[in-house]
Write a protein that binds this DNA or RNA. Structure first.
Lengths: 366, 366
DNA sequence: TGAACAAACCGTAACGGTTCAGAAGCCAAT
DNA sequence: ATTGGCTTCTGAACCGTTACGGTTTGTTCA
């Protein structure tokens, strides 16, 4: 009497058909094409299904047969906390999720753990396409995605041959921010940036590392700053750049501290993200520096909290970015030429930027 | 010469085996059990695969056979912006994603659009289990999930028979918050809460709606407040409660405005989320009310921005919540009794709560 | 009366893998 | 010469479904 505890096997479409004395096709049609069978029979099928505890066609088997998984994969940077703690990244995620929702497809977050070279997860993901968001350009997961025979869209990354791409016009935006500062009269500036490569470096950044940065967005922004300030006569080698691996307000504050400790005479702190800038604001307050009177601080991204704080920053439409990526991917069937979407950005001057105090003011007060 | 543009069909495991003159089993083993064939043959297989552009075993077919999808589904509330704009919800999402990453499984966000009765997405999701987060208890998607023959964990929701559950100890937390306010001497309070049901009501909330709230968390918090204040001699019917459908700082501010316009004499504003509380803070500032001298404001959740703002709030370990749910689900194989995890919460008194001003002070200043 | 056609249902062949119980070959030990 | 054990590879069954191209039955209309 000790039959295996696991009660009887789950009912399948076939067993249901057998029970009913109809063909499998008919049962399938009962679920997928109600017009293909009489209402009475359909009702009988559905009722028997309920009685037998048949939960409806198995999604995996269906996917195999129809060659549609009903989901798009999202590959994000190795470090999840980075993605979720940054409102800008969350905005992209939300936009993408919205696009997926509109299309009725799921969004599959691919587990690409830090240090995990386990590309298998990419291979295991049953999806109809991938969105790749801000991973370093030498990431093995990215390579694995590109091998999969499904459409792919990359976001905030350098273009890959033949692959759709969505990105902000970081170039222009950064230049306008830099010009804003130059115009105010700032010449002694410092930069706080996010991680530039997969190896950790919570410290000042030599020129070589700036140029070799594997994170496209950071590289672009640094490049544009460099060019603009050099055009204004500032020797970029003399501009201190501090990097932080983790991306949160506390690290922004510690980066600001490190920079200001060594370079107390900078008049402006340019941060490559709002989160870092919020940290810098906190540190400035701690030091008794008034912003913007004593120190100008700027951010990047235009997240809500930054706006509330009055931060001067570059706003980019993060939600749109995610949405565009989703639409691009979902509409990618049989397109020939790869498409590139560049989103507009906008300089938003807040209350954290002002002309630098003159040397005299610095020593004797206004 | 116009062969169909879509080059030849994708290579499959079978075609690869044919090309190599070996059995399908062997090719499969080359990928999954390297010890089952000679290294030379394996190398040959992999090389030929590369040459033919075979991207490795199809994930869907594999899933069908192995009966493992390698992903868990996440069903969240109808409205995505709600989920993504609330740092507390994002924290849960992050924790869940972390747990999935640890286990090497994907996280599949199920598209459950607002107003979309389209439960099909739940049926279409190829997943090994579901986490259901904070959906109203009468949501059809939830019912659909429970029909699927896979393990499920529900988070921040009333328990369902035989289903694992993770939730904060909202009860105790709310009581301690309420007692804090009672202890300070507050008797004329107002409440700002999030949506209570699926229908929109951006207005004051009658008792009946409070009791019938379909969102478990909100209902629990309101209940606990009611009980505690009534124990302190406050007639709950006289306590104004304002509801907002959307969950963001601006709506928090407008809710505060609405409440204070009608009840200018309340000495404390209790918000059922930090986001709403931040809005209330902004509105207080706009009115020239000093916090906490003129008005006490409290939140709920303990998000980072609230901490930075010094908000008195109830902190709950959101990251842990998500992680626990993930672990529970992923370790759920063959467990007998459903498990319930209750997470500790903690009252964090900040700088936004203080004793109410006496009537005299209110009129003549301190 | 029978041709034409629509509605309702069915049989077979995939879809692309994994798995398990062997078979074949080889070598060492009995 | 037999036995046993090991490595390497194979054949066939199976996973649960849907696509495709039928067949059967009944109704309409000339």
């Amino acid at each position: 009497m000790n039959r295996p505890m696991r009660t009887r096997r789950q009912a399948t479409l076939a067993s249901l058909a057998a029970e009913l004395g109809v063909s499998r096709t008919t049962v399938s049609n009962a679920y997928n094409r109600p017009d293909q069978l009489s209402p009475e029979l359909r009702k009988r099928v559905l009722e028997t299904a309920r009685r037998l505890g048949y939960p409806g066609p198995d999604p995996v088997a269906r996917s195999l047969r129809t060659r549609k998984a009903g989901a798009v994969g999202l590959l994000l940077t190795e470090n999840l906390s980075y993605a979720f703690r940054d409102p800008a990244a969350v905005g992209v995620l939300e936009g993408l999720a919205l696009a997926c929702e509109d299309a009725g497809v799921g969004l599959h977050l691919v587990p690409a753990g830090p240090g995990r070279e386990d590309v298998a997860a990419v291979h295991r993901a049953g999806v109809d396409g991938f969105v790749v968001y801000s991973v370093p350009d030498d990431d093995p997961h990215l390579a694995a995605v590109l091998q999969r025979p499904v459409p792919t869209v990359i976001v905030d990354q350098p273009s890959v041959d033949g692959v759709d791409r969505v990105g902000p016009d970081d170039e222009t935006a950064t230049v306008s921010l830099a010009n804003h500062l130059v115009g105010l009269g700032h010449r002694q500036v410092g930069v706080l940036c996010m991680r530039l490569a997969r190896d950790r470096n919570d410290d000042f950044v030599p020129m070589s590392r700036q140029q070799d940065a594997h994170y496209h967005v950071q590289r672009t922004r640094l490049d544009a700053l460099k060019r603009t300030f050099e055009a204004a006569g500032v020797a970029w080698e003399s501009v201190p750049v501090v990097e932080r691996f983790e991306h949160n307000v506390d690290d922004g504050a510690s980066a600001a501290r490190q920079l200001l400790d060594s370079y107390p005479r900078v008049t402006a702190l340019i941060c490559t993200s709002d989160i870092l800038a919020l940290g810098a604001l906190a540190e400035a307050g701690r030091r008794g520096l008034r912003v913007p009177a004593d120190l100008t601080i700027t951010g990047f991204d235009g997240i809500a909290e930054a706006t509330r704080a009055g931060l001067t920053t570059v706003h980019q439409p993060v939600l749109e970015k995610g949405k565009s990526a989703g639409k691009l991917l979902l509409g990618a069937a049989d397109r020939v030429a790869p498409k590139v979407i560049t989103l507009p950005t906008e300089l938003r001057v807040g209350t954290t930027s002002a002309p630098p105090r003159t040397a005299e003011e610095r020593w004797f007060g206004p």
